[in-house]
Design a protein around this nucleic acid. Structure first.
Lengths: 152, 152
DNA sequence: CCCGCAACTGCAAACCATTTGCAGCTCGGC
DNA sequence: GCCGAGCTGCAAATGGTTTGCAGTTGCGGG
């Protein structure tokens, strides 16, 4: 795996700064987690994050706690791809994290989908049912080109 | 809770017939599960199904196996509301089960949402990425009228 | 109506993702 | 450099789901 981060990835200092601003400590495990996340182009599971940590840095429980902190701070976004494993992706500052995915049912390859059209409908549905603060979760599932014609 | 089933619920005989047609046995636990499911208007968890079974009929493991069978036969549809608990709803014969939900983030009240607009987009996304057999999962989350103004 | 047996059930143990209790370590303000 | 709250590491608990296995039962054939 390449060490370089995607062009749009926030610098590590900006990330740690966000922690400090909220009076959270910048520890070795947290830095390693953030460093790993900023190199990813797809959401990663907490086990994947843990396995990618430098030897001796971090524990699975610490990864769980750190990711939870990051989520509560709005620094990462959680995704459920329906396989019982939560995945997370780093969010740029101020980014609302609205994004969907196309997931291969067989090999779990993930493609980002930028479109979202549910905003109107969301408002409509909220009003009709008297709900407030309505958001939505939308994921697509299919067979990727590689897996077509080669089913299990 | 009322014993009567929603008007659209398939008769129990039709359901058991679908089992027999596929050489599956019609056992007491399976009948009880189907009877329970046909009375529901919202997706139910397997634990809920189990608790609703008559005393002495069925075991939690049996519920899990039966529901899995029903799902593989396309007789029930699975939903993930993001709380780590799978929920299931009976499907009428031939029904594709396409339906979405509006779930209260706090009390987990569920409202069915019939609209779906994603069909075009689904096709578009499939074509653009070379995926086949694309489906989607869409759920809405919000605060229901009762829970507004009374947050935890 | 009874037989045979594969399908199915009940129970307990295993699994896996996630959470938690706790004692010791460390970041960062003083 | 010192101190204390915030963190970490480890291990054990939790909760949903799955599985192994021995005993039971639905149901087609006799």
């Amino acid at each position: 795996m390449s060490m370089s981060a995607p062009a749009h990835a926030p610098p590590l200092e900006e990330l740690t700064h966000r922690l400090r601003r909220r009076e959270r400590r910048v520890t070795a495990p947290r830095q390693a987690i953030l460093e790993f996340l900023r190199r990813q182009t797809h959401p990663a599971s907490r086990k994947e994050i843990f396995s990618a940590l430098p030897r001796g840095v971090g524990d699975l429980a610490t990864v769980y706690r750190s990711v939870q902190l990051l989520e509560s701070m709005g620094m990462v976004q959680r995704f459920d791809f329906g396989d019982g494993v939560a995945r997370y992706r780093l969010l740029a500052e101020g980014e609302d994290g609205h994004r969907h995915h196309l997931i291969c049912r067989q090999c779990r390859t993930v493609v980002e989908v930028r479109e979202c059209f549910a905003a109107d409908l969301e408002r409509q549905i909220a009003r009709r049912n008297g709900y407030r603060a309505v958001s939505h979760r939308l994921e697509f599932f299919g067979l990727c080109p590689q897996c077509q014609g080669a089913e299990p």
